[in-house]
Nucleic acid binder design. Structure first.
Length: 410
DNA sequence: TCTGGGGTCCTAGGACCC
DNA sequence: TCTGGGGTCCTAGGACCC
């Protein structure tokens, strides 16, 4: 069966939200950054991009290429709120909505075409509503599958609408550079280039055995991608796989080598991980510690698997400490990370009626999306200060298991 | 004046059990 | 006491996405 998939990509999402919230920023080059001292540009407005500002640049780099650049410290609550509302709009057109990130979603509108007429009509309706409600634009791709819909949405920015009809797939892919495909990154591009494969057309025609010899099972998938084939379904809210790991990492304001201070940060990270694990109703058996040294390039990760499933912050902290005790630090530490994996979902009390359960699942899934993508720019600096002001590193009452009752009500 | 933070998936090799 | 092989779990590391 032929599907019709939309991929919707908010243009310069964080920057657009900030420009909308503060009219003085409109039409100007702005960059959204994290709050710490060692932050990078998360998103920049199109005005800034036109002057050479790029995601990932340090603030000073951005200012160098664009001296008028206005720096805005990101506010995740604004972005998660807007993202949630926008995804609600999507669900007015189909229940089959999959949030790929905070600013990208896929919609399977196959079964909505009869009601709304066409995918293009749906796309224009959605664009108009997002512009009207939030003052921001989006680029939409329409195609027979997720891979091509995402490719299409990238072809026209900002405020684009690109359709890849089934009969046009081969023509469009013929000269499309392979790196445009979602899933082919820098390294894979280099490997394929060394095999004289530069375009999707060439990838799709490549002998499959040649690809599998080099890439194993991935080779089969690569050839399909080159041909524009993708049968992965749009997975709607509430039907995603269980979360597989929960982790937090933070670049410190300054490199540290004082063991007591390292332990202090480790405890805070463990608290963040534990609190979120409890909110998700999961506990885990494997604790992972990640350390990046002052030179930036040297880092290591070590994990330990316990006998029991845990989600209490102090237990996570204890495991992270025990890993730390097995190594001798070679340099001051730049970044610390703690994560919990090997997760098990804990049974919870479900509402009696199916409809309530479904709603609960959808709300919970949305919350998880928010949690996952909403914390992009949370800053350790401010967090630490807040904690310090609160007086101690003991787990405060608010860190008690959140459970289902605290799920955001809309 | 350097270079964030949240994930997922895959592979390879070793330990251990049957 | 030797042999092979399958399955599972674990650790480490890399590639990819936003």
């Amino acid at each position: 069966m032929t599907h019709t998939i939309l991929h919707i990509d908010m243009n310069a999402f964080f920057a657009s939200v900030e420009q909308q919230a503060n009219p003085e920023l409109r039409g100007k080059p702005i960059a959204v950054v994290g709050g710490g001292g060692r932050t990078v540009i998360t998103t920049s407005s199109y005005e800034a991009r036109a002057r050479g500002v790029k995601t990932g640049m340090a603030i000073w780099e951005g200012k160098r290429v664009c001296p008028e650049l206005i720096i805005v410290v990101g506010d995740n609550r604004k972005y998660t709120y807007t993202s949630t509302r926008i995804n609600e709009i999507f669900r007015d057109y189909t229940p089959e909505v999959e949030a790929f990130s905070i600013d990208e979603s896929w919609l399977d509108v196959t079964h909505s075409l009869g009601i709304f007429g066409s995918a293009v009509t749906i796309a224009y309706l959605i664009k108009a509503r997002i512009r009207h409600s939030f003052g921001i634009t989006c680029s939409i791709g329409i195609a027979p599958n997720k891979l091509l819909a995402k490719l299409a949405s990238d072809m026209q920015k900002p405020d684009g609408l690109t359709i890849i009809a089934p009969e046009d797939v081969a023509r469009i892919l013929e000269r499309m550079p392979i790196k445009e495909l979602c899933g082919i990154g820098r390294k894979m591009e280099r490997h394929l280039n060394m095999m004289s494969i530069y375009t999707c057309g060439e990838l799709g025609r490549c002998d499959e055995a040649r690809l599998t010899r080099k890439f194993g099972i991935v080779g089969t998938r690569l050839k399909q991608m080159g041909q524009g084939m993708d049968n992965s379904p749009v997975v709607q809210f509430g039907e995603e796989d269980e979360v597989k790991s929960v982790g937090h990492s933070r670049t410190l304001e300054q490199d540290i080598d004082d063991p007591a201070e390292i332990r202090r940060f480790l405890l805070q990270l463990s608290e963040m991980v534990g609190s979120r694990a409890r909110k998700y109703n999961v506990s885990g058996k494997t604790v992972h510690l990640y350390v990046r040294y002052a030179d930036f390039f040297t880092s290591w990760g070590k994990q330990t698997t316990l006998k029991n499933y845990i989600n209490q912050s102090d237990e996570i902290y204890k495991a992270a400490l025990s890993i730390l005790s097995t190594v001798e630090l070679e340099q001051p530490v730049r970044l610390l990370g703690v994560s919990l994996s090997n997760l098990k979902h804990q049974a919870e009390q479900l509402p009696l009626f199916l409809e309530d359960r479904k709603k609960l699942e959808a709300t919970k899934a949305m919350d998880e999306v928010n949690e996952r993508f909403g914390s992009v720019a949370v800053t350790f600096g401010s967090l630490v200060k807040d904690r310090d002001r609160a007086g101690s590193h003991v787990i405060p009452p608010s860190w008690r298991p959140d459970g289902i009752k605290n799920v955001r009500v809309r």
